[in-house]
Amino acid sequence: SGAPGSRVLITTRNVNVSRTSGVSEANMYQLSCLSDEDSWSLFKQRAFSGKSSDDYPELVPIGWKIVRKCKGLPLAVKTMASLLFCEFNKDKWEDILRSELWELTEGKDKILPSLKLSYHHLPSHIKPCFAYCAIFGKGHVFDKDRLVEMWMAQDSITTTARQCKEDVGRRYFEDLLQRSFFQKSRYFDSFVMHDLIHDLAMFICSGDCCEVVDGKLSSTSRVRHLLCRNERDFRRLLSCGCTDDLLKSSRTCYCVGDSMEPDDVDGAFFMKAMEGMFMKMKYLRVLHFLCIPEITELPDSLGNLKHLRYLHIYASGLTTLPESVGNLLNLQTLRVETPELNGLPRRLKDLVHLRHLCITGDFLGLTDSMGNLHNLRTLEVQSDKLNDLPESL
């Protein structure tokens, strides 16, 4: 609250952060690693699923050896315990203990061997789903259902004819959550990755994910997934002269963060740059972006993204969507958040593969042709002027 007597607590893994914040050495507290006993206490709570370790005497000595290999690091202990959660097979525990990955040094990538080991033992069908999460910046809070929809857009969820992709994707998510790759955030019903877990995802991606920082790309390799942390970097992405090969190879463009200041925008430039980008990113599957207030409509070239499966737009000034949206025949998820939206395109009925439609706007109603969306599973509409839904739904 800033009242007299208030204190600020800074937590960091980098001592230089404390120093640049003006904290004296005397006021720094260096956390030590967990003792073997504390590590074992943390490990057995998770690994034995609330049961007593005394009921599994053959596993206790193996567990102690695994704990000591974690070297007192809480995240490593928790991850190993999650890997063995409800797994009471002695051979499985010994397989983890004898893994050659323990012998790897941390190296320049700063990835703990225990985390590499935990990833190594992920089911093969879940590995690409975890690696894709590198698209989120460190500390980024994400929603479970939206992440599952993005996995679906990348064809990362394997199902049989009778299985629902969303249900299978949620099971993938719960598996990663149970194994401590994800953790609940302080915000309601949302999640986050530990910084070290995010480092692991970036290591697994090996250059497929690229962040735009001050108009520069963090990787020069053949990028598959682009991240912009704010709208300013998104604009710089549009103007940085990216090669056609880079844009053509992109499968994800994910822009999050704060909007630009009003005096730092150029609506005409933004519109023209978006039009050119949409013409080039022909193989894009996921597009998540913010739009500056001066933009009231999107370019028709949006319809050029024929492979797009997931589209999420946040734009405070957007009043309409182009009719070319009807060309996005592979679209599965459409999320539009704009308080000024005064209507939906007539060709929305052509999106026969659409499964999730979430719209916020200022429109009067939905058309009867919405009944053509036979694959629709989720319909969320927020508008103060909306009185009823069409009978065709």
Rank of each mutant, 00 (worst) to 15 (best):
M271N: 12
N342S: 11
A273L: 03
P128D: 06
L226Q: 00
T20N: 15
S114N: 12
C228P: 00
N89S: 11
S369D: 11
H194G: 02
C210R: 04
E337V: 07
L115Y: 07
E37A: 11
M281P: 01
K282Q: 11
Y56M: 05
F48W: 10
V60A: 08
Q154D: 14
T360V: 12
H140K: 14
F142D: 01
A315K: 02
I96E: 11
F181E: 00
L97R: 13
R251M: 07
H198S: 06
V223E: 01
T360M: 13
S221L: 03
N304F: 07
K127V: 01
E231F: 02
K349F: 01
A76P: 13
C228F: 00
S250Y: 00
S156E: 15
L176H: 04
D143K: 14
K385H: 12
E323N: 15
D189M: 12
I135S: 05
R146P: 02
P113V: 01
R346T: 07
A153Y: 07
T252W: 00
V23N: 14
C358P: 00
W151F: 13
A3G: 15
R224S: 09
R285F: 00
V77Y: 10
L290E: 09
S250K: 01
L117N: 09
M271K: 14
S383N: 11
G267D: 08
W93L: 11
P262S: 11
L331M: 13
L83G: 01
Q30G: 06
K78W: 06
